[in-house]
Design a protein around this nucleic acid. Sequence first.
DNA 1: CGCGATCTTGATAGGGTTCAAGGTCCGTGG
DNA 2: CCACGGACCTTGAACCCTATCAAGATCGCG
Lengths: 239, 239
Amino acid sequence: MIEPLLLNLEHRDVLAPSEHALLRKTMTMSRRIAKGDDLVSDGSRPTCSTLLVQGFAARYKITRDGGRQITALHVPGDFVDLHAFLLKTMDHGIVALSPCHVLLADHADLRQITESSPHLARLLWLDTLVHGSIHRAWIVAMGRRSKASHLAHIVCELYARLQITGNVDGQSFHFPLSQAEMADVMGLSLVHMNRVIQDMRRNGLISWVNQTVSILDWERLRTLAEFDPTYLNLWIEPR
Amino acid sequence: MIEPLLLNLEHRDVLAPSEHALLRKTMTMSRRIAKGDDLVSDGSRPTCSTLLVQGFAARYKITRDGGRQITALHVPGDFVDLHAFLLKTMDHGIVALSPCHVLLADHADLRQITESSPHLARLLWLDTLVHGSIHRAWIVAMGRRSKASHLAHIVCELYARLQITGNVDGQSFHFPLSQAEMADVMGLSLVHMNRVIQDMRRNGLISWVNQTVSILDWERLRTLAEFDPTYLNLWIEPR
DNA sequence: CGCGATCTTGATAGGGTTCAAGGTCCGTGG
DNA sequence: CCACGGACCTTGAACCCTATCAAGATCGCG
């Protein structure tokens, strides 16, 4: 069940068999979370970290006026709250956008990894750095891209991230978010989100029906998004 | 010269004298960068990481149409491209917004720290996690706050970050950005940025003259920004 | 004193929010 | 098996926020 994480890490560096074993030993507990429930709550102080192995989840923050902003989307293989191992207190929540299956790693065991297995520790560090890199890509998209380009960038990114764990099917992937949730990702109103999506469809770039997104024209989508996957660090090198 | 980094780390955990010494030994080279020059260039593969000890710097990305989005502001004490130690290839640039003084740490030496000094390694990891946390706060501000609230949040955040290294003076701090640069931070046009700033002044929240920002009414500024410093992790605990 | 960089203001147009209403789909219970 | 309700998607219209274009004002420096 830990395979999605291994695939993730192995796209960045070679793992020794002992590192496989160590990770397996660390991820003991398993949990299922229903759609809409929090994997991790705002303000909590987790004592273990959550690895998402199945389903979609989102980091989010609620503002005083009741608005919600999603700051990250998580897919199978993402170590969703590895952050809390060192940050200690959650300053935002993480919610299941679909039924989720997760594995838990006790912080004491993670600490043990940093003490005894520096290479594996660097790869876990790297995992959090890649998510930081994704945050920067989102900031650029929010600040300086058209809404269509922003959406296109998200679709390209999700395709790339889902592909490495085998969660795509041809040019399509399962995508369980509602348009309202997508609006919370892009910082738009629901009405405008809907219009941006329909423009995209009319232009023959994507289809999105039945919780399935399909990329109809990669080249034009990539160009519109100015998508360059460098920031996802999807290549192997010694780290 | 390494003091700002020590102050930064020591706001999160206790450092042993040997860890002080190790950091000092690692930060050998020193460099000065003129305003407007890149500390680190987009697309490069740095072999050392840059610690900012004096001045302001910004991470930025240029879009095809010539727009610029600043994804992070850096102040003295920030280990600005520790990321590249593991991410390897820069997918964005880092520019000096004022004359900057930096220290360099060779990646081989950083690797040595992760091998021999796990606690210090965790603190460096933590430093990058805090910057990820700041990214998320920015995403929330860009997506779901009014422009005035967004600006207020940035002012609160900078004040808090500058304070821990002793770079504030009462309720004021030196802030060398132009309004055009600030527009690239917030993803606005220059004209609108100017209007947001003037609203803020008219409301008696801040003054901003001569590269000096002063907070005139903390309580109202904090409320407007919904600023909660939890995400900056400015408290000591074992990590 | 003159020039470039920066800040400020006005006018216009377009993008995005909000309010309102109707449509579609699907699961549930009578 | 069909009626109903709820979640989600779609559309229209009015208004406001923000970008863009254009020009003038201010500041600091050589």
